[in-house]
Design a protein around this nucleic acid. Structure first.
Lengths: 209, 209
DNA sequence: TAGATTGTTAATCGATTAACAATC
DNA sequence: TAGATTGTTAATCGATTAACAATC
């Protein structure tokens, strides 16, 4: 059951929210939900929810609604969560260590195998739950331990080099926290996080609303 | 010189990107730029850039383009960056400490005065650059040291309570990293970060492109 | 002045919402 | 069956792009 219509990026960005909301419902022991009820919880319209879900097939049932567990499972599958991912982190500063030790990622199947830093002495700080190696060892490491996802948590200046090493080493996705916009190549998907952006959206609204 | 047309959220979310791009140009010593040149650097269309900027007045000059320093200053002003912000962080785990010690925020005028945690023993770990107090002290602290922005870096279960304490204590904005969607009230602006979402968008594209 | 490039209006495109027939 | 609610088409809305007159 593949995607029917092509799926817009706007829909893709809402999928994690559906997955999270359905997880909450499941935890509350709720077995079925209508687009109407879900719209109230999520702050979307029922119409939009039905449109979004229908990109991936007819997953509901008229007169009944959606089966929470089944829909969540299916969205997880669409998001690629029915497998595990090997992750390496470049940059063992605060952000790199936060990513490496966040249990929420581990629970979703993301396993940080190692961190790399220009200053491997950072290994001491707070125990990120995975070893910290000098950045010079990254290429050799990837050759022996292939990784799916590379996290870039370096200063801006080092981000491009990290991206080059990671893609050369065969990672297929980059999750970039450095304040530069990395471009996705054909072989490598990129998400630029730009933490600062949402902070500035906050101050914009503080000042202008 | 106030906003002419009302400014859509789509435009607001692009403003930090303009600010960052113009900062880079300024650092490179580039004094003027056309919408055409900027469009190449930022991966937007020149038309969109002119439309976006024009929401805030006629900031360019026909036949010349935009003055980099002047435009950056003006966008910073629009984003509310011509002042300093007092910040308190609730949750002194990895994310809270990463936010508290990130120099990029300090450089923009965001000053973390204190962190609060249910387990103040977290003070030892890695030195977040500001004191860690028990969460019970938050309300009293805010009464003496008013803060503009509250960062929520707690587990999901504790996020609502943290939000309540912060808003009761007078913060006007919440920057929420907990995996729940907090609702903005009339007196308090909210940005829900949801770090995991961009990771799942990444795996979606790995699987489906 | 001539050339360049904005500011701004008009056209297009895409995303959201509304409506309702299909169907469980 | 009757009631509920989806799946899906059509209408609306808003955002992006194109075009060009204004003007530096």
């Amino acid at each position: 059951m593949e995607a029917r219509n092509k799926v817009s990026e706007a829909v893709v960005r809402r999928l994690p929210g559906y997955y999270r909301a359905l997880g909450g419902l499941e935890k509350d022991g709720i077995a079925r939900i209508s687009s109407q009820e879900l719209s109230v919880r999520m702050g979307l319209t029922a119409s939009q929810i039905r449109q979004d879900i229908n990109c991936f097939g007819a997953l509901g049932q008229q007169g009944y609604g959606y089966n929470v567990t089944e829909l969540r499972r299916r969205i997880g599958e669409i998001l690629g969560l029915e497998r595990e991912y090997h992750v390496v982190v470049v940059g063992a500063g605060n952000i790199g260590r936060a990513v490496a030790s966040y249990q929420g990622f581990a629970r979703l199947g993301f396993h940080v195998a190692a961190l790399f830093d220009a200053n491997p002495a950072l290994a001491q700080h707070g125990g990120p739950g995975a070893p910290v190696y000098p950045i010079e060892k990254l290429s050799a490491y990837l050759a022996e331990h292939p990784a799916d996802i590379g996290v870039i948590a370096t200063p801006a200046e080092a981000a491009h080099e990290a991206a080059g090493l990671l893609t050369a080493g065969g990672v297929r996705a980059l999750w970039n926290f450095a304040p530069v916009d990395l471009q996705a190549g054909p072989e490598c998907t990129v998400q630029n996080v730009q933490l600062t952006d949402s902070l500035l959206v906050l101050t914009y609204h503080m000042q202008n609303d």
